[in-house]
Nucleic acid binder design. Structure first.
Lengths: 145, 145
DNA sequence: ATATTTTGTTATCAAATGATAAGTAAAGGG
DNA sequence: CCCTTTACTTATCATTTGATAACAAAATAT
C-alpha cells in the first residue's frame, strides 16, 4: 500500500468535494447577505441555539467581527438574540421566523440538486454510498481536536 | 432507503471534509501571500502549465482580477509567464523555482499531517478507504459540468 | 479586408473581511 | 470585597477581494 498514492487520491477527492459543494450551493445565498453572513446562518441553522463565542470559535471569526455580523443579521431580521438566565453575560442566538424560512428554502433547493446528482444511482449503490460516507468520516474525516 | 437521511449524512460529511481540509492546511500558507494567491498557486502546482483563462474559469475569479493576482505572484517571483508559439495571445503560467520549492514544502507538510491522521489505520482498512474514495468520487462527487 | 471574438492588461472603485484597541458588565476566585 | 477572567460591544483602520469600464493585440470568421 503506497501512502503517497493514497495521499494523492485524498487530495483529488477533497478537491472534488469542494467543487461539488460549490456547485450545489452556487447562487443559493440571497443577494442581500454576504458569503460570511450566509455561512454563519448555516451554522446557526444546524446548531441553534448558539452563543457568539461558539460562532467565533467554529467559524474562525474574531469576536468583534462576529459581533458585527450578528448585529447586521439581527438588523436584517434573520436571527435574534435572547438572554440565558444562568449567565447574563451570554447571548444565545437562533434564527428568526424569516431566517428559518430562508434557510429552509436554501436547504430544500440544495437537497433538490443533490437528488438530481444521485438520481441514476441504484438502491444497492445508495447503501454502498451511505456505508462509505460513514466509514470515511470515522477513519479519515473525523474531528481531530 | 431514505433519501432525506442520506442527504443529512451527505451534509454532515461534506462539513467534516471541509473542517479536516481546514485543519490540514491551517498555517501552511506563507504570510506574505493572500489566501486567494495561495489557492491559485495550488491550482498552478497541480495543473501547470495553465493559461490565465483556465485559472479564471476554475477558480471563479474574473480575468482582470486573475491578471492582477498573477502579476503580484510574478513580482514575488513565485510563478512565471511564458509565451506559447501557436497562439501569441496566450500566456502559459508555471511555478518558478522558488514557487515550486515553496509548494513542495507546503504539500510535504500537509502530507505529514495526513499521515499522522491515518497512522492507526490497518493496511486492509487503507484499501477500504482507497476503494471508498474512488467509489464516492465516481458516484457522488463527480464533475457535473 | 474587415468585423468579431478571444485573451489578456490597466485602472478604478466599492464592498467584504480581518485586525486591534478600548470599553462594559457579569461571573468566579481568593 | 476586590481582582481576574469571561462574554460581548463599539469604533476604527488596513487589506483583500470583487466588479466594471476601457483598452490592445492577436486570432478567427465572414
Amino acid at each position: 500500500m503506497d501512502k503517497e498514492a493514497l495521499f494523492q487520491k485524498f487530495v483529488a477527492f477533497t478537491t472534488a468535494v469542494h467543487e461539488v459543494t460549490y456547485e450545489l450551493t452556487k447562487d443559493i445565498k440571497p443577494d442581500d447577505i454576504t458569503p460570511v453572513q450566509y455561512s454563519i446562518l448555516e451554522y446557526i441553522a444546524v446548531s441553534q441555539p448558539v452563543t457568539l463565542s461558539q460562532i467565533s470559535d467554529c467559524k474562525d471569526i474574531s469576536m468583534p467581527n462576529t459581533s458585527r455580523e450578528i448585529k447586521k443579521l439581527t438588523e436584517k431580521n434573520l436571527c435574534e438574540k435572547f438572554n440565558v438566565a444562568e449567565d447574563r453575560r451570554k447571548q444565545l442566538i437562533r434564527l428568526s421566523k424569516a431566517g428559518q424560512t430562508m434557510m429552509n428554502g436554501a436547504f430544500q433547493r440544495i437537497g433538490g440538486r443533490f437528488a438530481e446528482r444521485i438520481k441514476d444511482v441504484s438502491i444497492e449503490q445508495l447503501e454502498d454510498i451511505e456505508r462509505a460516507l460513514d466509514m470515511l468520516q470515522s477513519k479519515v474525516f473525523y474531528d481531530g481536536k
